[in-house]
Design a protein around this nucleic acid. Structure first.
Lengths: 341, 341
DNA sequence: CGTTAGCACTCGATAGCGTTGAGTGCTAAT
DNA sequence: ATTAGCACTCAACGCTATCGAGTGCTAACG
């Protein structure tokens, strides 16, 4: 479809544009030592590339910038994965080798590393609920009529909620019910928990009637409240340093989007495994139509655990980001693998 | 120091400027129905006020804007506390009357209400650690060599951390040690916990030697890790809608500041009780030298629990914000009072 | 025939310049 | 003491000219 020379030129244009954020002219390309053609020749090729839809002109007599299609081709065929330099690699690894024994800590750090090394915004989703199961359920009395309900999952995630205990229920009764729940429910995946509660444990606890009903409510509340605990972000303000976000209005819509956890979850859910690149309008949300989102899933034994991603301008250093995500997703998988063995 | 008329004029200028964000001229003041003077008279007074340092002129032939000193005078002597209208009051209260039984939930909501109602950025600090004490300490085994350490405080706050258990220590031994710790340490304020650990419990657990040392480390880790859990923010992007933040650079320095939890903590710590207003350069941090920070502490039985605050441009609706903070801090005190009775 | 030099052309960006109008300070009249 | 009147200032706005980076086309070249 494209000649070697066209590919070369497209490649150079995109590389340069990623660095400079300004339209690239034929002269500047011609001057590069690795390009042996005159500006005129380059111009001809550029005109062709534009006709094919790989390049765009902001206006006549400006240089060319890559189009979405151009970026797409670049990502699919041209990009050289930046061989992450030794130093960076060590940096990444060192972050993970310290005593990092809590899952959320690992995830948080991953987000930080990503945003620090790329200067874009990083988004990390923790493991999906359906792979986690209940490890322990407990009530800790606080005062006369309050207690803390604590749920521990096999991933080491702890969810807690302070609840008020109905007057007519004694602490002892409560504790007894909790014991039964523990006996029956440990090991059950969180998503199936509710169903299991009603079906199996229901009969067993039948005689506890009222109390049981309340406890269910508590468990339910606790489970419902942790939906947003699993999105981590870092470097949200990095966006502001990019020249494409000089306009405050764009910044606002973008930052507002990032604050809406449900939207983020939705964007990240149902992503195919492996590395995905969504360029500009390929993204469903309008607010990021001039952004690119690169995501990588991390998984253990074939099971997808979660997703890490980088959000930056369409003019993004794809090579670097992709290779970084690749490394990091694998490292995370190894590290998190512990919890799932 | 100031004549009645000067005060009136200063008041009008600041009120108008807060609304319009644009320099106020003599004509526009004169035209107001409640001002019976001609522009010329107003001009004379304005010139005097400027000489006294209450007003500033961005440039000759522009209107006047309040100076820091002007705002200060306004806040100290002129501001009419916006009598929060019935509807808003109900709105605030309704937010709190629902089943809101977890401390962090209350605080989070308070931050949300504040930012929603003011369109500025709200910052809320949860109760200081020294008023909270240990309620419960527990280990939940996860796998062969890992466990979750859970600390519950009397405020209903739960702190947790996944830890790895040294090979040479059996779960039973561990559990035994935990039991002793619980027996000895419940009720001890968190800040004194560490000292108490070494002094009192040390001897008791002497024979557990090694294990004890490890457990200490665990408790220590857990306590050290929750320093930033207590700052809540809402409406950070509201800043962007203010005309004084058209400039992306200012926005960035500001948002960066807000992301540094330690700095925020530092800013809020050691604030005198009651309502405080820090205008412009009265703030220590340069990044908010064109902002005003209004804070209110909330306390139960004379003990200060925490702080709620609003960060906005110096051109801020002081009357509204102050009265809102007043109401909210009192409501929060009542609500949180439960935990401390 | 592919490549390149030359040249006219386009158009955003920048600078210079007059105009406008909001606002001031001063003076003299009320 | 207040106000009307007036000259003055200055940012904002719009207009025009200039500049230059970059293009597209044509013709010449190897």
């Amino acid at each position: 479809m494209l000649s070697d020379r066209q590919r070369m030129i497209l490649n150079v244009i995109i590389d340069d544009y990623i660095r400079s954020a300004e339209p690239i002219g034929s002269r500047s390309i011609s001057k590069r030592s690795d390009v042996g053609y005159s500006p005129a020749t380059i111009r001809n090729e550029m005109a062709d590339l534009e006709e094919l839809g790989f390049l765009e002109q902001p206006h006549t007599s400006a240089g060319r910038i890559p189009s979405i299609k151009g970026y797409r081709y670049y990502v699919d065929h041209l990009v050289k994965l930046g061989e992450v330099n030794e130093q960076d690699l060590l940096f990444v690894r060192s972050f993970f080798t310290e005593k990092m024994n809590q899952m959320e800590q690992i995830i948080q750090h991953a987000a930080m590393i990503l945003s620090n090394m790329t200067n874009y915004t990083s988004i990390v989703l923790g493991p999906e609920t359906f792979t986690t199961s209940l490890k322990h359920f407990q009530l800790v009395p606080l005062g006369e009529d309050t207690a803390v309900a604590i749920i521990v999952t096999n991933t080491g995630h702890v969810e807690n909620r302070t609840i008020s205990i109905p007057q007519e229920m004694s602490m002892d009764e409560m504790q007894q019910a909790v014991n039964i729940l523990n006996a029956k429910l440990i090991g059950v995946p969180l998503v199936r928990l509710k169903a299991k509660l009603y079906s199996e444990v229901g009969q067993e606890l039948g005689r506890y009637a009222d109390q049981f009903e309340r406890l269910l409510g508590i468990l339910d509340q606790t489970l419902a409240s942790d939906n947003d605990h699993r999105v981590f972000m870092s470097g949200t303000t990095n966006m502001l340093t990019q020249p494409e976000f000089k306009d405050v209005d764009k910044v606002k819509t973008l930052l507002d989007l990032l604050e809406e956890t449900p939207t983020i979850m939705q964007m990240f859910s149902a992503l195919p495994s492996g590395i995905q690149v969504r360029i500009g309008t390929e993204n469903t949300h309008e607010a990021i139509n001039n952004c690119s989102l690169i995501t990588a899933t991390y998984s253990v034994e074939g099971k997808s655990l979660g997703t890490i991603g980088i959000l930056g301008p369409t003019r993004m250093d794809y090579g670097k980001v992709i290779s970084l995500l690749d490394i990091l997703s694998k490292d995370m998988a190894v590290l998190l693998g512990r919890w799932y063995k």
